[in-house]
Amino acid sequence: MDRGLVIGGVIFAFLLAMPVLLPIVGAEYLTGLLIKAMLLAIAAISLDLIIGHGGMVSLGHAAFIGVGAYTTAIGLQSGIEEIFVLLAITLGATGAIALVTGILALRTSGVYFLMITLAFGQMIYFTLTSLAAYGGDDGLTLWSLATLFGSDIVQDGRGLFFFVFAALLLTWIGVWRVSQSRFGRVLRAARDNPQRAEVMGYPVARYQLIAYVIAACIAGVSGLLLVQYAEFVSPSIAAWQRSGDLIVAIVLGGLGSRNGALLGAFFIVIMEEFLSSFLHEWRLIYGPLLVLLVLFAKGGLNDLLQPTSREAS
């Protein structure tokens, strides 16, 4: 039995039951929190494709969330409302920017890759702050949101919850399948030993570039959904600290594992919420907790639930 699949299945079943369970226990206000966690999870899973499976540590991933969010916001402002049309535009925009920045960034590796992705991310961030017509530094409140085939069902509450849920489920299944496919095998081989992969006959940089673009596109989708959820967009979502949060989520959850990014993202959102609700200086606990987890659970949260999982990665 595939334990990772079972654990993931339980998490998703649990999520799916939430819109029914929360009103019963009078905690409907948590729906928003769950949507936030799912959006973070989508971005974290996509980042895990390049860091966990690809070994390329990017510190600019949140910029693609920003690109996706702003593309969507600008689309909405110009009267495009159909969510699948916005999705196509978002994928095109993030994909194109990732392709160009990826070609340049992948001429380097290791710390240099980290620095150059940070630099590109900051360039995108500052570009967003300079978009005066779209709120500049302050961001932009959206008065109209995306529709699904003309219906406003995906604009809030359960409709939006299920839409985000579906996006997360697809991301979770898709990224894992990709990581275990022929393509993913080459990507993982290049993470383990790029020279060996090259000597086997693989043009490593091309595979890495494709992974980079795929990951950016998925992050772009989480940006689109973030706009739909928050009804607001500002450059802060693209800041490098957000990229850092994503890295924390996947390291905490367990790099390159079936459920690591998912667990890590939920863990972070839930910890923040709970710790900050009873302790103003919650980061005082949060920091040491992260240190302990990284020190004593090398494979992250995923490894605590599924001790053999690293073989598969």
Partner: peptide, 17 residues
């Protein structure tokens, strides 16, 4: 993995290798 480099395309994204 070495065999795969010489056997068909590695641009297959879905079937488990």
């Amino acid at each position: 993995t070495a065999l795969q480099a010489k056997t068909g395309s590695s641009l297959r994204f879905f079937a488990p290798a």
